[in-house]
């Protein structure tokens, strides 16, 4: 039947290429929508303006932050927020409700990879818009230093990939809850509200009430926006950076275990009752 058998590696590479190509084309069609969706993450930019206003009113600095410090922090926070966007909970919910999830299950590939690839390719379409906004912000507010050094940039890329993986898997877990709940996407919105509040989009965590800081350290939220942003603008010593990366890996492992369990249980449940 098969004329020339292919190695498993070659097969995987072909699948990657095919999915990447198709979804990149798809996301390019949707570039206008993507641009509009970017606006749902304006909070850091609004806060940027508010804090600069506060700094000006206070005569230059608030809590040791000058206008350009705020600019660097919030632009980095906005950039990080944009890089970790994940809507996979909605996708899964929609697919289950429309019945298209069935046909995804019938293909000899885990639907995870299709969703993952959608998000990766979308980042390529979103990228230029993000860079434009960040560049504009840096130019408009004089003295803003967004990237501390090439080394910081490299570590930031690693940190933001880990942050995306955490956010994506959380969204995926919430999406899988659609097997049991009527509309689990509301939970994803809940997550979003919490993350705006607690991830450092409102203010650098240094400004948060003292009693709240230690609690935040035990939640994943600061590790997907605040800490990556701090890494990029060079406000963390290298020892602290190492700790952040380690905690990110721990979170990723925890959520991955949860994800595997939900996937197995969800498949069994879907098999038992359908959609």
């Amino acid at each position: 039947m098969n004329s020339q058998p292919m190695s498993p590696f070659e097969n995987t590479w072909r699948k990657f290429k095919a999915l990447f190509g198709a979804w990149l084309a798809h996301m390019t069609v949707y570039r206008a929508e993507i641009l509009i969706w970017m606006l749902s993450g304006t909070i850091p930019l609004i806060m940027l303006a508010v804090w600069i206003g506060q700094a000006q009113a206070a005569g230059g600095t608030v809590g040791g932050f000058s206008a350009s410090d705020f600019a660097a922090y919030f632009l980095a926070a906005w950039l990080s927020g944009q890089m970790i966007v994940a809507w996979v909970a909605w996708e899964i919910d929609f697919a289950i409700r429309q019945g298209t999830f069935s046909s995804k299950l019938l293909r000899p590939i885990n639907p995870f990879w299709e969703y993952f690839m959608q998000h990766i390719t979308e980042r390529f379409v979103r990228g230029p818009f993000i860079l434009a906004v960040v560049a504009l912000g840096t130019l408009l507010i004089p003295g803003t230093r967004l990237v501390a050094s090439a080394g910081h940039l490299l570590v930031y890329i690693l940190a933001i990939i880990l942050a995306f993986a955490i956010r994506f898997l959380i969204a995926y877990c919430i999406g899988l809850l659609c097997f049991w709940l009527e509309n689990a996407t509301a939970l994803d919105e809940l997550y979003f509200v919490l993350s705006i509040m607690l991830s450092g989009s409102f203010a650098p965590l240094d400004f948060y009430p003292a009693w709240l800081r230690p609690i935040l350290e035990f939640l994943p939220f600061p590790y997907i926006v605040y800490y990556p942003a701090q890494i990029l603008i060079g406000r963390l010593p290298w020892s602290e950076i190492a700790r952040v990366l380690l905690v990110q890996c721990v979170w990723l492992a925890i959520i991955f275990v949860l994800f595997s369990w939900l996937w197995k249980a969800g498949r069994r449940h879907y098999g038992a009752v359908g959609a």
Binding site: A58, G63, A186, L190, L194, M197, F202, F207, P209
Partner: peptide
């Protein structure tokens, strides 16, 4: 869920106000 979300959102905004008003 929506009820919880709304309350959280308002609490978040109040927290934001407190943080902003912190020094000035």
């Amino acid at each position: 869920i929506n009820l919880v979300e709304t309350i959280l959102r308002v609490l978040g905004s109040l927290l934001g106000l407190i943080i902003l008003l912190g020094e000035n």
